[in-house]
Amino acid sequence: MSKVIYKFGDDISTDIIYPGRFMATVLPSETPEFAFADEKDLNKLLNSKTVPADSIIIGGKNFGCGSSREQACSTLKGHELIIIAKNFARIFLQNSINLGLKTVICPDIDADVNDELEISEDKVFNKTKGKEYNIIPHTKTQQEIIQAGGLIPYSRKRLIEGSK
């Protein structure tokens, strides 16, 4: 069971998730501080260290649109968030899979701040509203990457296989 801590509308860009002026900071261990830096309340909440792991942010359509900056995923992964959105922008979605940020594609999702959600393999159940929504699964290769623990171990395995 996880709680919704914030709800966004459509087209949340990587400039909102991780503003360009922090892009010289690249290491995944250093990016979480700047998550949603210009959404002051949310940034403060995340940095307060009071948000439990697997807390949920709800997005609308096209979440993560804009730049390819991977910091936008590592910053959210650092706070161990789950992002549920109607759909995601391509590069953001692939980056999140590569880095192990949990993303759920749920076209009809309806949830508000403080709602409690249960995420199963193919459904999101909103306990507060008593409603259930279907999930669009990630592709087979994406699931393999997730299961391998991200693209780094996945590619490492391929590298070792290839060098034999």
């Binding site: 690249v26 391929r158 590298l159």
Partner: peptide
């Protein structure tokens, strides 16, 4: 693509 994906391309 993202940076980790590029690292994978540089490798493979």
């Amino acid at each position: 693509i993202g940076a980790t994906e590029m690292a994978s391309v540089w490798t493979l």
